[in-house]
């Protein structure tokens, strides 16, 4: 795994786009700002759905309605997160790909995405008046905790590896 990724790092290092991004000091902070704004879209969607499931917020809409409301923005934000994440990898391949926290984050992202998509599908298929069962509430809360884990790992990439 390390050898394979080191090969990718070496290849990225030879790309002119890597040098361009690295030399333009504003690109990485600008892309990171967009990345954080998109994290806000995804995380807030998960948080409000979980709080609605627990009947702590958003009582004017059903859980199904909230889930439909956040579906489009969450999906769009996830694509932007992928794009901005790729720019960050191209900018600093060694710092990202050779870092065990980055790899942990990617694993967490995949697990969280799968659960988020499954939960979203189930919620959108529900009747508007149907209250959330214990299982749905638990999974919605789990998604919030998993996204917190992803965000934590994301910030720790800068400090450990």
């Amino acid at each position: 795994m390390d050898e394979l990724l080191q090969g990718v790092v070496n290849w990225i290092d030879t790309l002119s786009v890597h040098a361009t991004i690295r030399d333009a000091g504003w690109v990485v902070p600008a892309v990171q700002s967009i990345h954080i704004a998109c994290v806000a879209l995804v995380f807030t969607g998960a948080l409000i759905v979980a709080l609605r499931g627990l009947e702590l917020a958003g009582g004017h809409w059903s859980l199904a309605r909230w889930s439909r409301y956040f579906h489009g923005s969450t999906m769009a934000a996830l694509w932007v997160l992928l794009a901005t994440g790729l720019v960050m990898i191209v900018a600093e391949p060694e710092r990202e790909l050779m870092n065990w926290i980055f790899r942990t984050k990617m694993l967490l992202v995949v697990v969280t995405l799968l659960i988020t998509i499954a939960l979203g599908r189930r919620l959108r298929q529900r009747g508007a008046d149907r209250p959330a069962g214990g299982g749905v509430r638990l999974v919605a809360l789990l998604v919030v905790l998993l996204w917190i884990g992803v965000a934590m790992a994301g910030r720790w990439i800068a400090y450990a590896g």
């Binding site: 954080i36 704004a37 994290v39 806000a40 879209l41 995380f43 807030t44 969607g45 948080l47 409000i48 917190i148 965000a151 934590m152 910030r155 720790w156 800068a158 400090y159 450990a160």
Partner: peptide, 21 residues
């Protein structure tokens, strides 16, 4: 510092995401 920064970024994320709604 890193742990406090993690909490700071998460808080800002919720501030921005919720106020955006």
């Amino acid at each position: 510092f890193p742990w406090i920064e993690v909490a700071h970024v998460l808080s800002i994320v919720v501030v921005f995401g919720s106020i955006l709604l």
